[in-house]
Design a protein around this nucleic acid. Structure first.
Lengths: 238, 238
DNA sequence: CGACAACTTGAAGAACCTCAACCCTTGTGG
DNA sequence: CCACAAGGGTTGAGGTTCTTCAAGTTGTCG
């Protein structure tokens, strides 16, 4: 069940024994309904979740309720691992679709790390990868126009799903509404709609009813100023 | 020299022995000229730097050279600690002013962590705090207008400088040009200028020649939708 | 004093938002 | 099987925010 644990997130090797120990440490497996907040910000938590199936997101709301997504999570991601050292979150975590998650108690993770220092390093890696994605989002929001932002979100998501075998580069499932895409890109839902129409008419991507069909991946990357090396460099870090 | 190490970043206690061990592990102390890139993205590095004095920043450049700051660093910050596990950076690190940095070899950090597991956890904490700031920047760029973004940057910086004794809440040194503020806020330098004038005319903050005079901190926080609890919650995590 | 960089201001246009309508699909109850 | 309600998607018109371009002004350092 956790086979693909960190599949898109590993750096260096994870020993069979370590993976097994992790699997044995699962406190319980939960099924969560879609579209609801699972961990509210500020709440002290003593568990963290590995997303096994479904899509989740992390977000912050402004004073008038305008929502900004700060991360999108795909299967294989640890959703709130940083809550382990920090104990409480500065943002909300919620489901976009019905989800299956493996729950780990922080006390058990602590013991695991003592026993397998390398595993602790892998977990740290995972949070650093999240930080790298955060930086890419900052760049996206700060320097790209609406079309570039949407293209970037799609390109990044395609890349990550490909790492866990959920995209073949031609099409993939993305169960987000246009208003979710807008929330991630810092634009309004109306404008997201216009941008998506534009990308469709230009033959770059076709986004509809939870499915993304990629017409021209190169053009998508160009539109997004997306670097192929980002997240998964082919050399050096192994 | 490293007394204020992690002063604004600590969670839990750092033992005297641990702090001493860290101090003893400094490979060398460098003085860097202002306004230059110190670590270019993609370069494999085997050291990390603790900023002792001066201001540094991390940034990414777009295709046409438009720069987006992704983080601003103040004394006490580890500037590129995440390069320790990742080995190379996805962005550039540079100085805003002449700086003094303490340099640590990754191999030495590795040994340190083995000897003092708690120190490893503290270092992990530090990178998680960076990630929390990244998220705040995402929110800032995604959901605030130009005035709110600038106000947020100033509020956040004031908060962080206060933690290391470099601000009294009334005024503080911020050796940034208007174009730097613009780079951090995803706006043009021209617009940054207009926004600063507006904030000045409304008596909120006065930014000039490297100094920020805070006229009305409450109003600044309101403008920025800034949460006082952010970064340094007063309960729970200690 | 002269040169250069940062800062400042104005005017025109592009990008995005707001508001308001309408369409289309899906599910539900009669 | 149809009627209708509800939510998401789509489109238009007009306004606001921010950018771009261009021209000063100020400040600093040789």
């Amino acid at each position: 069940m956790i086979e693909r644990f960190l599949a898109g997130r590993r750096r260096g090797e994870l020993l069979v024994a370590e993976l097994q120990a992790l699997e044995d440490s699962v406190e319980r497996v939960d099924t969560l309904p879609g579209r609801q907040t699972v961990v509210p910000h500020g709440k002290v938590v003593d568990t963290s979740m590995l997303l096994v199936d479904g899509f989740m997101a992390r977000y912050m709301d402004g004073l008038e309720g305008e929502r900004q997504l700060v991360a999108l999570h795909v299967p294989g991601d640890f959703v709130d691992l940083h809550a382990f050292p920090l104990r409480k979150l500065d943002h909300d975590v919620g489901t976009m679709t019905p989800c299956t998650v493996a729950v780990f108690k922080h006390s058990v993770i602590e013991a695991l790390i003592m026993q397998f220092p390398n595993l602790g390093k892998q977990l740290w890696f995972s949070t650093l990868l999240d930080a790298a994605m955060h930086r890419e989002w900052i760049f996206r929001l700060g320097r790209l126009g609406a079309a570039g932002r949407v293209a970037h979100l799609l390109a990044e998501t395609e890349r990550r799903l490909r790492m866990v075998g959920m995209s073949d580069g031609k099409s993939f499932a993305l169960p987000l509404q246009q208003s979710d895409i807008a929330s991630a890109c810092g634009i309004t839902a109306v404008h997201a709609n216009r941008v998506l129409r534009d990308l469709r008419e230009r033959g770059i991507v076709q986004v509809s009813s939870g499915t993304v069909k990629v017409g021209d991946l190169k053009a998508l990357h160009r539109e997004a100023e997306f670097d192929e090396q980002y997240l998964y460099p082919s050399d050096g870090t192994k």
